[in-house]
C-alpha cells in the first residue's frame, strides 16, 4: 500500500491536505488494521493527498488520562503536539473516536489546535465535495444495526453522520432499543479495554451484543476499533459468529465500492 509519511512529504517539500492518525489499535491490532487499510483504500479512491506519522506516531495518552494518569497523558499530548506543530499539521482524521475526542477537546488547551475529523465525518465530507461516491450494490438488502461508540455519540454528539453513510449502502438498517444518546457502552471505554472487568454477573459487551442480536442483524456496524473488538467477542459469546459479522463503516464502504 502506498502510505506516505509526513517525513517523506517534508523531504519532498510537500504538505498533505490531511494527516491520518492511525492510533495504537489501528496500527497493531490485527482486526483493527483491516479497518485502517479499508480507510486508506477509500482515501486513495477519493484521491486524497494524505500522510501518516508512521514511526513518529505515539499514543495520544487518552487511555492513560481515563485511567487517572494525567501526567502521562500530558507528556504524551505535549510530545505529539510538538511533532504535529513541527509538521504544521492543520487537519487530522482518525478511525478512533477516543483519539478524535482527545484531539478535538483536550489537545487545544495544551497548544494543539487542529481541525479534527472522525473518519465517518471525513468520508461524508468527501461525498459532499463530490470526491467519492458509494455504489452500494454489494450490501443491498442486508440487515444491519449500528452501535454508537460512546466517544463519538454522547461524548461529542455525532449520531447522524455514521447513519447517513449507512443509508447510502442500500442496507436495511434497524435501530437497537438503546441507540444514539441512550446507547449502551460496549464495555471498553475508560481504559477498561486494558483490564479485566470488576466483579459482576455479566460482561458489558455480552449485554450490548444481546441488544444487537434482538434486531436480528447480519451485520453489526460500528465506528470504533475498540467497540469492534468488544462486539466481535460478544457475537462469539452468543455463538453467532457464523451468521453475524461486525464491521467498521469504513470496511463496509470499501466493500460496497469493491476496494
Amino acid at each position: 500500500m502506498n502510505v506516505p509519511t509526513m517525513a517523506d512529504m517534508m523531504a519532498q517539500g510537500k504538505q498533505p491536505e490531511v494527516l491520518f492518525w492511525v492510533g495504537a489499535a489501528g496500527s497493531y491490532d490485527d482486526r483493527a488494521k483491516k479497518i485502517t487499510r479499508s480507510f486508506v483504500k477509500i482515501l486513495h479512491q477519493a484521491n486524497v493527498d494524505f500522510a501518516v506519522l508512521g514511526t513518529e506516531e505515539s499514543s495520544t495518552g487518552d487511555a492513560a488520562k481515563r485511567a487517572g494518569n494525567e501526567f502521562l497523558f500530558q507528556m504524551q499530548a505535549m510530545t505529539n503536539i510538538e511533532i504535529l506543530n513541527a509538521y504544521e499539521v492543520k487537519t487530522i482524521v482518525t478511525c478512533d473516536p477516543h483519539s478524535f475526542n482527545t484531539f478535538k477537546n483536550e489537545y487545544p488547551s495544551l497548544g494543539g489546535n487542529y481541525k479534527v475529523y472522525h473518519h465517518t465525518q471525513y468520508i461524508n465530507k468527501l461525498i459532499a465535495d463530490g470526491r467519492l461516491t458509494i455504489e452500494g450494490e454489494n450490501l443491498k438488502g442486508k440487515r444491519l444495526t449500528y452501535h454508537d461508540p460512546c466517544y463519538l455519540g454522547r461524548a461529542n454528539d455525532v449520531y447522524e453522520t455514521p447513519r447517513d453513510l449507512i443509508r447510502r449502502l442500500g442496507v436495511k438498517p434497524t435501530e437497537m432499543k438503546r441507540h444514539k444518546s441512550t446507547a449502551l457502552c460496549c464495555g471498553a471505554g475508560g481504559a477498561q479495554m486494558f483490564k479485566e472487568p470488576e466483579k459482576g454477573d455479566l460482561d458489558i459487551n455480552v449485554l450490548r451484543t444481546k441488544d444487537a442480536l434482538e434486531t436480528n442483524p447480519e451485520i453489526i456496524a460500528t465506528g470504533c476499533p475498540y467497540c469492534n473488538t468488544m462486539m466481535t467477542d460478544g457475537v462469539k459469546f452468543h455463538l453467532k459468529e457464523d451468521q453475524i459479522v461486525v464491521k467498521d463503516i469504513a470496511e463496509l464502504i470499501a466493500e460496497a465500492n469493491n476496494l
Partner: peptide, 18 residues
Amino acid sequence: IENNGAPWQYSQMDRLNW
C-alpha cells in the same frame, strides 16, 4: 505507553507495518 508509545508492548518502530 511510557516505553513504546502504545498501550501494548509493541515497538514503536513497527507502527507502520500494517
